[in-house]
Amino acid sequence: MTTNPWLAGPSPTRRLERDRLEERILNLLSSQNMCVIATTGRDGAPHATPVRYFHLGFELVFTALGTSPKIRNLRADPRVSAGVFAPLVGQASSRGAQLFGTARVLEPDDADFGAYWPVVRWQSDHVERSRPLDEPPLGTIAVITPDRIVYTEHWLRREGYAPRQTLNL
Score class of each variant (00 low, 15 high):
residue 3 T to P: 00
residue 42 R to D: 12
residue 122 W to G: 02
residue 94 S to T: 08
residue 9 G to S: 13
residue 40 T to I: 11
residue 134 D to W: 04
residue 164 R to I: 06
residue 36 V to G: 03
residue 76 A to E: 10
residue 56 L to M: 09
residue 160 G to V: 07
residue 21 L to T: 05
residue 166 T to Q: 14
residue 29 L to S: 03
residue 109 D to E: 11
residue 34 M to I: 15
residue 113 F to V: 02
residue 55 H to E: 09
residue 36 V to K: 01
residue 100 F to Q: 09
residue 79 R to M: 03
residue 24 R to W: 05
residue 93 S to D: 09
residue 81 S to P: 05
residue 51 V to F: 00
residue 141 I to E: 01
residue 57 G to F: 07
residue 27 N to W: 03
residue 43 D to Q: 13
residue 34 M to N: 11
residue 13 T to I: 14
residue 74 L to T: 09
residue 138 L to Q: 14
residue 63 T to W: 01
residue 142 A to Y: 02
residue 114 G to E: 13
residue 137 P to M: 07
residue 52 R to D: 11
residue 169 L to N: 08
residue 144 I to T: 04
residue 113 F to T: 05
residue 3 T to H: 07
residue 120 V to C: 05
residue 99 L to T: 13
residue 130 S to P: 02
residue 85 F to I: 14
residue 109 D to W: 13
residue 50 P to Q: 04
residue 118 P to Y: 01
residue 108 P to E: 15
residue 53 Y to F: 14
residue 111 A to K: 15
residue 138 L to G: 07
residue 162 A to G: 08
residue 13 T to S: 14
residue 148 R to S: 10
residue 152 T to K: 03
residue 75 R to W: 02
residue 151 Y to E: 15
residue 18 R to Q: 11
residue 63 T to V: 12
residue 129 R to L: 11
residue 70 K to H: 14
residue 98 Q to E: 14
residue 103 A to P: 02
residue 51 V to R: 00
residue 130 S to Y: 09
residue 36 V to S: 10
residue 129 R to A: 12
residue 158 R to D: 01
residue 121 R to C: 09
residue 60 L to R: 14
residue 7 L to S: 01
residue 55 H to P: 08
residue 165 Q to Y: 08
residue 82 A to R: 00
residue 124 S to M: 11
residue 70 K to I: 05
residue 73 N to P: 01
residue 10 P to F: 07
residue 48 A to S: 08
residue 100 F to Y: 12
residue 123 Q to M: 01
residue 29 L to V: 02
residue 158 R to C: 00
residue 64 A to P: 07
residue 163 P to I: 00
residue 132 P to K: 06
residue 147 D to W: 08
residue 165 Q to W: 08
residue 84 V to I: 13
residue 8 A to I: 11
residue 37 I to T: 10
residue 123 Q to F: 00
residue 153 E to D: 15
residue 75 R to E: 06
residue 109 D to T: 11
residue 136 P to W: 12
residue 163 P to Q: 00
residue 41 G to E: 10
residue 33 N to D: 07
residue 9 G to A: 12
residue 165 Q to H: 12
residue 17 E to T: 01
residue 94 S to E: 08
residue 143 V to S: 06
residue 124 S to W: 12
residue 18 R to L: 11
residue 4 N to F: 12
residue 24 R to D: 06
residue 60 L to Y: 08
residue 87 P to D: 13
residue 22 E to N: 05
residue 119 V to L: 06
residue 33 N to R: 06
residue 21 L to G: 06
residue 161 Y to P: 07
residue 104 R to I: 08
residue 96 G to T: 05
residue 4 N to V: 04
residue 158 R to Q: 04
residue 82 A to E: 01
residue 157 R to C: 11
residue 130 S to V: 06
residue 131 R to H: 07
residue 25 I to M: 06
residue 110 D to S: 12
